[in-house]
Amino acid sequence: MKKLRIAWGITGAGHYLRESYAVMGELKKEGHSITTFVSRAGEEVSRMYGLFDDLKEISDGTYLNEIFLDSAQGASFPKIGRFNLKRYDLFVLTPATSNTVAKIVFGIADTLVTNCAAQAMKSDVPCLIVPVDQESDVVSELPYTLDRSRCESCAECPPKAACPGEAIQDHIDLLKCQGCGTCVDLCLHGAISGGDPVPLTIRQVDARNTRMLAEMEHVQVISRPKRLLETVRKM
Protein backbone atom coordinates (compact mmCIF):
# COMPACT_ATOMS: atom_id res chain seq x y z
CA MET A 1 0.00 0.00 0.00
CA LYS A 2 1.32 3.40 -0.99
CA LYS A 3 2.15 5.75 1.88
CA LEU A 4 0.21 8.94 1.24
CA ARG A 5 0.86 12.54 2.15
CA ILE A 6 -2.53 13.55 3.51
CA ALA A 7 -3.82 17.03 4.28
CA TRP A 8 -6.66 16.66 6.78
CA GLY A 9 -9.26 19.32 7.55
CA ILE A 10 -11.32 19.45 10.75
CA THR A 11 -14.29 21.78 11.22
CA GLY A 12 -16.55 22.50 14.18
CA ALA A 13 -18.98 19.60 14.27
CA GLY A 14 -19.43 17.33 17.27
CA HIS A 15 -21.07 14.70 15.10
CA TYR A 16 -18.49 12.28 13.65
CA LEU A 17 -15.69 14.09 15.50
CA ARG A 18 -14.55 11.16 17.66
CA GLU A 19 -14.82 8.77 14.73
CA SER A 20 -12.79 11.16 12.57
CA TYR A 21 -10.01 11.30 15.15
CA ALA A 22 -10.03 7.49 15.42
CA VAL A 23 -9.67 7.12 11.65
CA MET A 24 -6.83 9.64 11.61
CA GLY A 25 -5.06 7.57 14.24
CA GLU A 26 -5.50 4.36 12.24
CA LEU A 27 -4.11 5.91 9.06
CA LYS A 28 -1.19 7.37 10.98
CA LYS A 29 -0.36 3.90 12.33
CA GLU A 30 -0.35 2.62 8.75
CA GLY A 31 2.47 5.02 7.93
CA HIS A 32 0.73 7.88 6.15
CA SER A 33 1.82 11.47 6.75
CA ILE A 34 -0.98 13.69 8.07
CA THR A 35 -0.91 17.48 8.15
CA THR A 36 -3.92 18.73 10.09
CA PHE A 37 -5.69 21.98 9.19
CA VAL A 38 -8.15 23.02 11.91
CA SER A 39 -10.83 25.70 11.61
CA ARG A 40 -11.48 28.06 14.52
CA ALA A 41 -14.68 26.23 15.40
CA GLY A 42 -12.94 22.89 14.87
CA GLU A 43 -10.32 23.85 17.43
CA GLU A 44 -12.94 24.94 19.97
CA VAL A 45 -15.12 21.86 19.55
CA SER A 46 -12.12 19.50 19.65
CA ARG A 47 -11.17 21.00 23.01
CA MET A 48 -14.76 20.71 24.30
CA TYR A 49 -14.75 16.99 23.52
CA GLY A 50 -11.31 16.43 25.05
CA LEU A 51 -9.75 15.45 21.73
CA PHE A 52 -7.46 18.32 20.85
CA ASP A 53 -4.38 16.92 22.58
CA ASP A 54 -4.73 13.73 20.52
CA LEU A 55 -3.72 15.74 17.46
CA LYS A 56 -0.17 16.05 18.77
CA GLU A 57 0.22 12.28 18.51
CA ILE A 58 -1.22 12.18 15.00
CA SER A 59 0.53 15.27 13.63
CA ASP A 60 3.76 15.36 15.63
CA GLY A 61 5.24 18.53 14.17
CA THR A 62 7.67 17.01 11.69
CA TYR A 63 7.49 18.12 8.06
CA LEU A 64 4.12 17.19 6.50
CA ASN A 65 2.93 16.13 9.95
CA GLU A 66 2.22 19.58 11.38
CA ILE A 67 -0.89 21.12 12.91
CA PHE A 68 -2.05 24.40 11.38
CA LEU A 69 -4.76 26.34 13.20
CA ASP A 70 -7.00 28.89 11.54
CA SER A 71 -6.63 30.99 14.69
CA ALA A 72 -2.86 31.21 14.15
CA GLN A 73 -2.74 31.76 10.38
CA GLY A 74 -2.54 35.00 8.46
CA ALA A 75 -5.32 36.17 6.17
CA SER A 76 -3.55 34.77 3.10
CA PHE A 77 -3.14 31.26 4.60
CA PRO A 78 0.43 30.81 3.25
CA LYS A 79 0.66 27.10 4.12
CA ILE A 80 -2.09 26.39 1.60
CA GLY A 81 0.50 26.91 -1.14
CA ARG A 82 1.66 23.36 -0.50
CA PHE A 83 -1.29 22.12 -2.54
CA ASN A 84 -0.08 24.09 -5.56
CA LEU A 85 3.41 22.66 -5.04
CA LYS A 86 2.01 19.10 -5.09
CA ARG A 87 3.11 18.38 -1.54
CA TYR A 88 -0.07 16.41 -0.82
CA ASP A 89 -1.54 13.33 -2.47
CA LEU A 90 -4.96 13.66 -0.85
CA PHE A 91 -7.19 16.13 0.99
CA VAL A 92 -9.56 14.67 3.58
CA LEU A 93 -12.21 16.80 5.28
CA THR A 94 -14.08 15.29 8.20
CA PRO A 95 -16.20 16.24 9.92
CA ALA A 96 -17.43 18.87 7.46
CA THR A 97 -20.12 21.17 8.84
CA SER A 98 -23.05 22.32 6.72
CA ASN A 99 -21.54 25.81 6.74
CA THR A 100 -18.25 24.50 5.35
CA VAL A 101 -20.00 22.42 2.70
CA ALA A 102 -22.08 25.42 1.58
CA LYS A 103 -18.97 27.57 1.25
CA ILE A 104 -17.15 24.94 -0.80
CA VAL A 105 -20.14 24.42 -3.09
CA PHE A 106 -20.52 28.15 -3.76
CA GLY A 107 -16.82 28.83 -4.16
CA ILE A 108 -16.21 30.72 -0.91
CA ALA A 109 -12.71 30.17 0.46
CA ASP A 110 -12.44 32.59 3.37
CA THR A 111 -11.27 30.15 6.07
CA LEU A 112 -8.25 27.91 6.41
CA VAL A 113 -10.21 24.73 5.67
CA THR A 114 -12.33 26.07 2.80
CA ASN A 115 -9.15 27.48 1.27
CA CYS A 116 -7.60 24.02 1.54
CA ALA A 117 -10.54 22.61 -0.40
CA ALA A 118 -10.33 25.31 -3.06
CA GLN A 119 -6.59 24.93 -3.62
CA ALA A 120 -6.78 21.14 -3.57
CA MET A 121 -9.36 21.22 -6.37
CA LYS A 122 -7.34 23.79 -8.34
CA SER A 123 -4.28 21.57 -8.01
CA ASP A 124 -6.07 18.34 -9.04
CA VAL A 125 -5.66 16.82 -5.58
CA PRO A 126 -8.40 14.26 -4.80
CA CYS A 127 -10.77 15.36 -2.03
CA LEU A 128 -12.60 12.96 0.29
CA ILE A 129 -15.24 14.83 2.28
CA VAL A 130 -17.56 13.59 5.04
CA PRO A 131 -20.43 16.07 5.50
CA VAL A 132 -22.26 15.75 8.80
CA ASP A 133 -25.55 16.66 7.12
CA GLN A 134 -26.38 14.18 4.38
CA GLU A 135 -29.69 12.55 3.48
CA SER A 136 -30.83 11.07 6.80
CA ASP A 137 -31.27 12.60 10.24
CA VAL A 138 -28.37 12.22 12.64
CA VAL A 139 -27.78 11.68 16.34
CA SER A 140 -25.01 13.91 17.63
CA GLU A 141 -23.33 14.11 21.04
CA LEU A 142 -23.68 16.95 23.53
CA PRO A 143 -20.61 18.43 25.22
CA TYR A 144 -20.51 18.74 29.01
CA THR A 145 -23.37 20.75 30.49
CA LEU A 146 -24.55 21.88 33.93
CA ASP A 147 -28.20 21.34 34.84
CA ARG A 148 -29.05 24.44 36.89
CA SER A 149 -32.20 22.78 38.26
CA ARG A 150 -30.07 20.13 40.00
CA CYS A 151 -27.17 22.34 41.02
CA GLU A 152 -27.16 23.20 44.76
CA SER A 153 -24.55 25.98 44.42
CA CYS A 154 -22.35 24.33 47.03
CA ALA A 155 -20.01 26.67 48.90
CA GLU A 156 -17.22 24.21 48.16
CA CYS A 157 -17.80 22.76 44.70
CA PRO A 158 -15.56 19.73 44.00
CA PRO A 159 -16.03 19.91 40.20
CA LYS A 160 -15.10 23.60 40.17
CA ALA A 161 -12.02 23.00 42.32
CA ALA A 162 -10.83 20.11 40.15
CA CYS A 163 -11.53 21.61 36.72
CA PRO A 164 -8.16 22.01 34.91
CA GLY A 165 -9.58 24.65 32.57
CA GLU A 166 -11.39 26.68 35.27
CA ALA A 167 -14.49 26.30 33.13
CA ILE A 168 -17.08 25.84 35.89
CA GLN A 169 -18.84 28.82 37.42
CA ASP A 170 -22.65 28.91 37.50
CA HIS A 171 -22.42 27.21 34.11
CA ILE A 172 -19.78 25.41 32.07
CA ASP A 173 -17.81 27.73 29.81
CA LEU A 174 -17.37 25.49 26.78
CA LEU A 175 -14.58 27.68 25.43
CA LYS A 176 -12.54 26.76 28.51
CA CYS A 177 -13.76 23.18 28.93
CA GLN A 178 -11.13 20.57 28.03
CA GLY A 179 -13.61 17.72 27.80
CA CYS A 180 -11.83 15.60 30.42
CA GLY A 181 -15.05 14.62 32.22
CA THR A 182 -13.51 14.88 35.70
CA CYS A 183 -16.42 17.01 36.89
CA VAL A 184 -19.15 14.44 36.22
CA ASP A 185 -18.28 12.00 39.00
CA LEU A 186 -17.27 14.74 41.43
CA CYS A 187 -20.65 16.48 41.43
CA LEU A 188 -22.54 15.27 44.51
CA HIS A 189 -25.91 16.11 42.99
CA GLY A 190 -25.49 14.70 39.49
CA ALA A 191 -25.88 18.13 37.94
CA ILE A 192 -23.17 17.68 35.30
CA SER A 193 -23.43 15.41 32.30
CA GLY A 194 -21.80 14.99 28.92
CA GLY A 195 -21.96 12.82 25.85
CA ASP A 196 -25.75 12.61 25.85
CA PRO A 197 -27.25 11.84 22.42
CA VAL A 198 -29.20 14.60 20.69
CA PRO A 199 -31.23 13.95 17.50
CA LEU A 200 -30.89 16.48 14.70
CA THR A 201 -33.10 16.92 11.65
CA ILE A 202 -31.24 17.57 8.41
CA ARG A 203 -32.41 20.71 6.63
CA GLN A 204 -33.31 20.31 2.98
CA VAL A 205 -30.87 23.05 2.00
CA ASP A 206 -28.01 21.17 3.67
CA ALA A 207 -28.93 17.87 1.99
CA ARG A 208 -29.09 19.69 -1.35
CA ASN A 209 -25.67 21.25 -0.83
CA THR A 210 -24.23 17.82 -0.05
CA ARG A 211 -25.62 16.50 -3.34
CA MET A 212 -24.07 19.46 -5.16
CA LEU A 213 -20.77 18.81 -3.40
CA ALA A 214 -20.78 15.23 -4.69
CA GLU A 215 -21.03 16.54 -8.25
CA MET A 216 -17.93 18.73 -7.99
CA GLU A 217 -14.77 17.78 -9.84
CA HIS A 218 -12.10 16.00 -7.75
CA VAL A 219 -14.57 15.48 -4.87
CA GLN A 220 -15.85 12.20 -3.47
CA VAL A 221 -18.43 12.39 -0.69
CA ILE A 222 -18.02 9.67 1.94
CA SER A 223 -20.96 8.62 4.12
CA ARG A 224 -19.04 8.46 7.41
CA PRO A 225 -15.42 8.63 8.62
CA LYS A 226 -14.80 4.89 9.04
CA ARG A 227 -15.58 4.40 5.34
CA LEU A 228 -12.49 6.49 4.61
CA LEU A 229 -10.24 3.62 5.65
CA GLU A 230 -11.32 1.37 2.80
CA THR A 231 -11.17 4.22 0.29
CA VAL A 232 -7.69 5.36 1.30
CA ARG A 233 -6.33 1.81 1.39
CA LYS A 234 -7.34 1.34 -2.24
CA MET A 235 -5.44 4.41 -3.42
Rank of each mutant, 00 (worst) to 15 (best):
F91E: 01
F91S: 02
F91N: 01
V92C: 07
V92Y: 07
V92P: 01
V92H: 08
V92S: 06
V92G: 08
V92Q: 08
L93D: 00
L93E: 00
T94Q: 11
T94C: 15
P95N: 09
P95H: 08
P95R: 06
P95S: 07
P95A: 07
P95V: 11
A96I: 14
A96N: 01
T97R: 10
T97P: 09
T97E: 10
S98W: 12
S98M: 12
N99F: 04
N99W: 04
N99I: 05
N99G: 12
N99Y: 08
T100V: 03
T100N: 05
T100F: 03
V101I: 14
A102R: 00
A102W: 02
A102K: 00
K103T: 13
K103F: 10
K103Y: 11
K103I: 12
I104Y: 11
I104A: 14
I104F: 10
V105L: 02
V105T: 07
V105Q: 04
F106A: 00
F106G: 00
F106N: 15
F106T: 15
G107H: 12
G107C: 10
G107L: 09
G107T: 13
I108V: 15
I108N: 05
I108T: 14
A109L: 02
A109T: 09
A109W: 04
A109M: 02
D110K: 12
D110C: 12
T111Y: 03
T111P: 03
T111K: 03
L112V: 13
L112F: 13
L112M: 10
V113A: 06
V113L: 06
V113D: 06
T114N: 05
T114L: 01
T114Y: 05
N115W: 00
N115I: 00
N115G: 06
N115T: 14
N115V: 00
C116W: 05
C116F: 07
C116Y: 06
C116E: 00
C116T: 15
A117M: 10
A117S: 14
A118P: 00
A118W: 05
A118S: 13
A118C: 10
A118I: 02
A118R: 15
Q119A: 11
Q119W: 05
Q119G: 00
Q119C: 01
A120R: 07
A120K: 07
A120Q: 07
M121R: 15
M121H: 02
K122A: 09
K122T: 06
K122H: 03
K122M: 06
